[in-house]
Amino acid sequence: MDSLWFTYYLPLIWALLIGTAIVLYVLLDGFDLGMGILFPHTKDEGERDQMMNSVAPFWDGNETWLILGGGGLWVAFPKAYAVIMPGVYLPIIFMLLSLVFRGVAFEFRFVSKPDHRKWDVAFAAGSTLAAFFQGVVLGAVVYQLPVENGAFAGGPLAWLHPFSIMCGIGMVAGYALLGCGWLMMRTEGPLARKAQGWALPLLGVLLAFIAAVSIWTPLVIPRIADRWFSLPQFYYLLAVPVLTALVAFSAYRGIRANRGAQTFFSTVGLFLLCFLGLAVSVFPYLVPASVTIWEAAAAPESQLFVLLGTIPLLPIILIYTGFIYWTFRGRLKPGEGYH
């Protein structure tokens, strides 16, 4: 177990896998959290039902990617898991409690009709806060947590700073935009038109956020400035902002032309490019500036044991997930459900 393969490439493969799980989580749960964020913007009962019905068969499976992201981090990089989780203790707890509220709201809202106002609030607030605190956690980790001797060494509020708050807001805007793309793509009637109207300002907020992060992080963190602006990699990495601009334009066109799929998948592209940019900025660290992918890695035999199961299981999961999406395909008309 001492060969280069086990000590060098295996952790890299796992970093890629966890990156994939987190990206899949954001894309899949992103739009259904987006549903909750957009929820307060329509007062129409039928439209709210339509929003919820459009994601009801999927949300539980979507949220499982969050467990895979967190669980996978523990499996493959226990040291990173052990530093990050205490470091972002409160925002993680807030996120989990928000997910509790919005998760049960799917079921409770319909039971309590016509007296369901409180579960409307729980769904909207829970979804919005869960998205916000996911952004905060990401921001706090990127901005660097205080670490000494391989353990988190900060206070309970070490995660709280303008950068993490900004990331929280960016995440809310991004998920809401994904939600708009979903509604434009998967629903019919006035709701789809409304979603188109919400999308444009959200795209503006998201792009402003991406620009702010791109300027802020290299200014504050010299390591990130070096990574992006030193030659010759500057030329290769230039592709990331150029592609981002192109995809942003595609999202803009999608919204203006009311093309739901184009809007949705362009937003997905924006998220992917953000993650790519993030990976470029923090590589090779999992806990930026303190714990690298290789330092955090679990025993090679542990990584290998789960990898051998993941290779057949992950495609199977993707296939049956695809099957469920295919079964519940098509646009949802007002007042219609999967029946």
Binding site: T64, I67, L68, G71, G72, W74, V75, P78, A298, S302, F305, V306, G309, T310, L313, L314, I317
Partner: peptide
């Protein structure tokens, strides 16, 4: 953790 990982998968 691998046991939990297999539980998820």
């Amino acid at each position: 953790a691998p046991l939990i990982g297999y539980e998820v998968l």
